[in-house]
Amino acid sequence: MTAPGGVRLDKWLWQARFFKSRSLSAAQVEDGRVRVNGQPVSKSATTVRPGDVLTFAQGGRIRVVRVLATALRRGPAAEAQLLYDDLDAGDSAPQALA
């Protein structure tokens, strides 16, 4: 189930299961902690569309993802993973400090 056109940034981050609640994703955006196509944004209502690249911090690491689709609802994790391409997949393991 794909939403036509674009969707609000905070809603997409929540639907893709990067944040547990929409208010947490909105707070990240409003604090200027999210970039869309390399540009910092501070408005939750910023529209994202397939092809956009998002950069944000999550759980102590920097995530870089490409939006592949938008959704009509927040579905299960397997469905959410179809919404994005993880561009940072090679760095999924945390680095040990020497």
Rank of each mutant, 00 (worst) to 15 (best):
M1R: 11
T2Y: 08
T2D: 12
T2I: 04
A3C: 13
A3S: 15
P4R: 15
P4Y: 14
P4K: 15
P4D: 15
G5P: 04
G5L: 12
G5R: 13
G6C: 07
G6A: 05
V7L: 14
V7N: 08
V7T: 13
R8N: 12
K11M: 09
W12Q: 10
W14Y: 15
W14C: 05
Q15K: 05
Q15T: 02
R17C: 09
R17W: 11
F18L: 05
K20E: 11
K20L: 10
S21Y: 00
R22S: 02
R22W: 06
S23F: 11
L24H: 09
L24V: 10
S25C: 08
S25W: 09
A26F: 02
A26R: 08
A27H: 01
A27K: 11
A27P: 04
A27D: 10
A27W: 00
Q28S: 13
V29Y: 01
D31V: 04
R33C: 09
V34L: 06
R35Q: 15
R35P: 03
V36K: 06
N37G: 12
Q39K: 14
Q39G: 06
Q39N: 07
Q39M: 12
Q39A: 15
Q39S: 09
Q39H: 15
S42I: 05
S42P: 04
S42M: 11
K43Q: 14
K43F: 11
A45N: 12
T46M: 11
T46D: 11
R49D: 02
R49I: 02
G51M: 02
D52V: 02
D52G: 00
D52L: 05
D52M: 04
T55E: 15
T55Q: 13
F56W: 05
A57S: 09
A57R: 14
Q58K: 06
Q58L: 08
G59H: 01
G59V: 00
G60M: 04
R61D: 05
I62N: 05
I62E: 15
I62W: 04
R63N: 05
R63I: 05
R63A: 05
V64T: 06
V65S: 03
R66D: 04
R66A: 06
V67Y: 03
A69D: 07
A69S: 06
T70I: 00
L72M: 08
L72D: 09
R73D: 07
R73M: 04
R74L: 01
R74I: 01
P76E: 14
P76Q: 07
A77I: 03
A77Y: 05
A77Q: 04
A78R: 08
A78Y: 03
A78N: 06
E79S: 02
Q81E: 15
L82E: 13
L82I: 01
L82Q: 13
L83W: 06
L83F: 07
D85I: 01
D86S: 03
L87K: 10
D88R: 07
D88K: 03
D91N: 12
D91S: 13
D91L: 14
S92P: 09
S92A: 15
S92R: 15
P94G: 07
P94Y: 12
Q95P: 03
Q95C: 11
Q95T: 10
A96I: 05
L97N: 02
L97W: 10
